[in-house]
Amino acid sequence: MFLIRRGLALASPGFLLVLTLGFLPLAIILVWSFWTWDPATYWIRPDFSFDAYAQIGEAGRWHVILSSLGKAALAGVLCLLVGYPAALAIHFVASRPLAFVLMGAFTVPFFTSYLIRAFSWRLVLGRNGLINSWLLDLGLISEPLDWLLFSNFAVMVGLVASYLPFVIFPLLLSMRRVEPNFIAASQDLGAGFLRTLFTVIIPLTKPGIFAGFLFVFVMAAGSSTEVQMLGGAGASMISIIINDVMRVVNFPLAFAISAVVLVLLFAAVLIGNRIFGLTKLFEDFK
């Protein structure tokens, strides 16, 4: 009992930090979403009103929220499809110095600004971009493909490229927890590589898969740069509509949208944890 209390005491600065930096802002957002606009002070005043929540349904905002979450989920899945083999290569196939180089290759883009990263895709996907000029040179197409840029396709390319490292690192973490002998045992019992991959490696890396998906999903759901730089004229995202309502000083609505998205994301985390055991990533298997 004494030890537990002492443990709590030792951990209390950390707890305090998490509470003030993590939970306090969220709590404020939640509280303010129920306040109402006060024209007298040009700010919001304490209230308990659901007006802001009612407004979410207007102007097709639900559609943007849901399609944002849809795009974010798709980005998460695509990142996993690209990132899993990459992580597998780094973990199992590559020798140590090479693994370091490969990991570096996935990290270096992060040293540049996300604006520049998104912008550089314009040079690749644009009408006169790399891909179109190659395809034209090869004679595969007679005129440039228009759907490459300023489209959902381009947004998805931008999102996947931006957030790929966020699936690779949790995957690597979970793969390190797969004992090499599990793979040897599977082989020993006659299984080839693919069979081992699907019956042993993937099930044992589920927490990493979910963690990676979650990182990408959450960040893509909150992204705006990729959509603004690469999306079409009508493309919108949650953060863009929040920005729009903030510009017309409708703070309660901005907070309400944030609160709804928060609740949806928390629900996704909790459900996912129930199914995939996210916390196992940080536990010791015994």
């Binding site: 004992e179 006659g190 044992l204």
Partner: peptide, 20 residues
């Protein structure tokens, strides 16, 4: 011949039972 095609089976030191 790779391990998965050899007519022998191994009991590993750490047993390597699949935990899932």
């Amino acid at each position: 011949l790779p391990a998965n095609r050899r007519q022998c089976n191994t009991v590993f030191q750490d047993l390597a039972l699949f935990p899932h």
